[in-house]
Each structure stands twice: as structure tokens, then as C-alpha cells.
């Protein structure tokens, strides 16, 4: 029997909805792929045709939120924003969209987004990282003076590390309204923006050629 493209999209959607519900009800660790399949009324085997595992499923959910955060960010940019401020609202909007997933975001950051996980052969997380960094890079370029050096790979890696740190911190932040995360973001982005002034190109190994 041929499965139409439309049916495929619908099934994928059903799985995502089911996973979303269970993750927020029972937590990421407390949910099995079997539970999700049952909730979505499909066979567990079918689920694996769509997602290799629970982690990728979570990542896909987060990716959807980040996608809508991204389009909101593009329309919400204000004039005369400093780079620091633009980067701040970029992250802030993401956090607003990720709020429903805060309970299990920490697990996802740890398992799939971690910088220690670069060897992972699935490219969903690589895509997510690339898309995020592309926006950051264009913000930096938008605020650059002709004299500023191109942000190096090292710089972008620094950014990504800070960003994941913020996500991980936020996921576990017990302070009122997660205000401590705001302070962390403020400090992290000041640090990052001030490091842009330092010419990190000299640190790049391939520059010696």
C-alpha cells in the first residue's frame, strides 16, 4: 500500500503532538517511544520510520518552536538596537517560544545539542545550530564597521557555547520568573560582544598559511 505524502505529513504531525503532550506531562525521561506511539495510535515500529529516537523527536519539537521564534524575531527588530540588544532579543524571543518545553529542554541540550555531541550523525541538530549561527552572524555583520574583522569560527563557537549555557541554565532556573537567566544573558552577551573587539583571528590555526 502506498502512503501518500499527505498522510505521511499527517502522521508525523500526530507523533509530534503526542510527544509534545507526553513530554510536558511525564517529562522527557519519563516518556518512552512506546508511550508516544500509543498516544499517537501507531505502531512503535512506524514511529521509528519517522524519528530515529526520542531525542530527535524532542529536537524536532524544539525546532518547530525555534522556527516560529525566528520569524517573529525578523519582524520584531527595532531600529537603533545595539548588537548586544539585538542578540539579547534574539535569545529572549526563543525562550518565550520554548517556554512550554522548559521542563525537558535541559535533557535535550545535554543529549543532542551539547558541543560534546558534534560527532552525532544526525543533522537535525547541526541544522539547528547552523541556522541559529547564521542569524547571529548576520546580526554581527549588520553592526560591524568596515574595520571590524569577520567573526571567526572561534568566535562563533564561543557564542554557541554561551548560548547553550544560557539554555541549560534557564531550563533549571528556579529564581522568580527565571530572572537569573536574564542576568546571565546580559553578562554572557556583554562578554561576547566585548570579545568581538579582540581580533581572535590571530588564534586561528589556519591563518599562518
Amino acid at each position: 500500500m502506498r502512503i501518500t505524502a499527505k498522510a505521511k505529513i499527517e502522521t508525523r504531525q500526530r507523533i509530534l503532538v503526542a510527544a509534545r503532550k507526553l513530554f510536558s506531562d511525564k517529562g522527557f525521561a519519563g516518556t518512552t517511544t512506546r508511550d508516544i506511539a500509543v498516544e499517537a495510535s501507531i505502531a512503535t515500529g512506524t514511529l521509528f520510520n519517522y524519528f530515529p529516537g526520542k531525542e530527535q523527536l524532542a529536537l524536532a519539537i524544539i525546532d518547530i518552536s525555534l522556527e516560529s521564534a525566528h520569524s517573529e524575531f525578523l519582524t520584531s527588530q527595532r531600529e537603533n538596537e545595539s548588537l548586544e540588544e539585538a542578540l539579547f532579543s534574539h535569545i529572549a524571543i526563543m525562550l518565550r517560544h520554548l517556554r512550554p518545553h522548559r521542563g525537558y529542554l535541559g535533557d535535550v541540550v545535554e543529549t543532542t545539542l551539547s558541543p560534546f555531541n558534534q560527532s552525532s550523525d544526525d543533522d537535525a541538530s547541526a541544522n539547528l545550530r547552523a541556522r541559529h549561527l547564521e542569524t547571529v552572524q548576520s546580526l554581527i555583520e549588520g553592526h560591524a564597521t568596515p574595520a571590524s574583522p569577520q567573526p571567526s569560527a572561534v568566535i562563533m563557537h564561543l557564542y554557541w557555547t554561551l548560548f547553550l549555557g544560557v539554555l541549560a541554565y534557564w531550563a533549571k532556573d528556579e529564581s522568580p520568573n527565571q530572572e537569573d537567566t536574564l542576568v546571565l544573558m546580559d553578562h554572557a552577551l556583554r562578554l561576547f560582544v566585548s570579545s568581538l573587539d579582540i581580533n581572535l583571528n590571530t588564534l586561528e590555526p589556519n591563518r599562518s598559511s
Binding site: E81, S82, S89, A92, R96, N177
Partner: peptide, 16 residues
Amino acid sequence: APSMHFSLLREFVHGE
């Protein structure tokens, strides 16, 4: 106190 740019302030106000 450190000064706040509007993006930070907005999140804080939203939280409160």
C-alpha cells in the same frame, strides 16, 4: 545598578 537595554527590560517587565 548596571543599566538595562530595552530588550532586557522588556523580558523583565514581561516576567513581572
